[in-house]
């Protein structure tokens, strides 16, 4: 039983087909990498799943319920967590408060005007922070965190929503190579423990082959290959458009 199921998804921008007829699914606990050269349609596809863009064709279902056509907020409410390529956190709050915010939203406690928010779900937030290794920094402002720590905070915030599906757009962009692998292995562990399906885009092939269970390759809006690491490495079509350039990256 898959968590996310995408069927025949398509999107055009003024006559240019950015994504056409893409179908795939992600199972609980599975890490699915979405790769492809620049302009392949990764971001468009990603934003259609996350609700930032509305598809022209096809459907996105989460646990059997259709989520295509919903906005980002409603998609989040259905149990989709998300991290951004450029980290987005709440700068006027401490690390712990960032996570508390996500839990408050998840537990539908936003529209309360009396009890201080700081007293709610502090322990739960600390538990999540401990899982990503940020517990000692709980009291700090997010503005003073190192970049890698910000990425881990985003992960903890996304987990605060108790997601069934986690969308990670270029999760390791801007990080040092050693940090990249550490962050994705942490994600790998959390996904397995919590049965979260993870869909991520990634430019670093080492990271992709290291952590992804399955890989989707997108080129000019169409899915050209799907499979595990060795299968993708051996796929001639992928080698031609992507790996065959010999750069290792893109």
């Amino acid at each position: 039983m898959s968590v996310l199921s995408v069927q025949g998804l398509g999107k055009s921008f003024g006559g240019v087909r950015a994504v056409s007829d893409v179908s795939f699914s992600v199972a609980p606990g599975e890490m699915l990498a979405l790769i492809g050269p620049n302009g392949a349609g990764k971001s468009t596809l990603f934003n259609m799943v996350g609700g930032q863009l509305q598809p022209d064709a096809g459907s996105v279902t989460l646990g059997g319920a259709t989520i295509s056509g919903l906005g980002p907020r409603a998609v989040a409410r259905q149990g989709v967590g998300r991290t951004f390529q450029i980290t987005a956190t709440f700068g006027s709050m401490t690390v712990r408060e960032n996570v508390q915010m996500a839990i408050l939203s998840h537990r539908r406690e936003i529209w309360r005007f009396w009890r201080p928010a700081a007293e709610r779900f502090g322990d739960e937030a600390d538990a999540l922070l401990a899982q990503v290794g940020l517990e000692v920094q709980a009291e700090r402002a997010t503005g003073v965190l190192a970049y890698g720590d910000l990425k881990r905070l985003e992960l903890a915030v996304a987990l605060g929503n108790a997601p069934r599906l986690l969308l990670m757009d270029e999760p390791t962009a801007g990080m040092a190579p050693a940090e990249r692998v550490a962050l994705m292995q942490l994600t790998r562990r959390l996904a397995t423990e919590r049965g979260i399906a993870v869909l991520f885009t990634e430019h670093d092939m080492d990271v992709v082959f290291d952590v992804a269970d399955r890989i989707l390759v997108l080129d000019r809006g169409a899915l050209i290959a799907e499979g595990d690491g060795p299968a993708i490495r051996a796929n001639p079509a992928v080698r031609a458009v992507y790996l065959g350039t010999g750069s290792g990256g893109h």
Partner: peptide, 24 residues
Amino acid sequence: YAPYGYALRAARDSAPRARAIGLD
């Protein structure tokens, strides 16, 4: 200082992030 005020501030700090955790 209540959850509402925090959520309002969250929406100001980063609207995309606020939406991504389900805030209206």
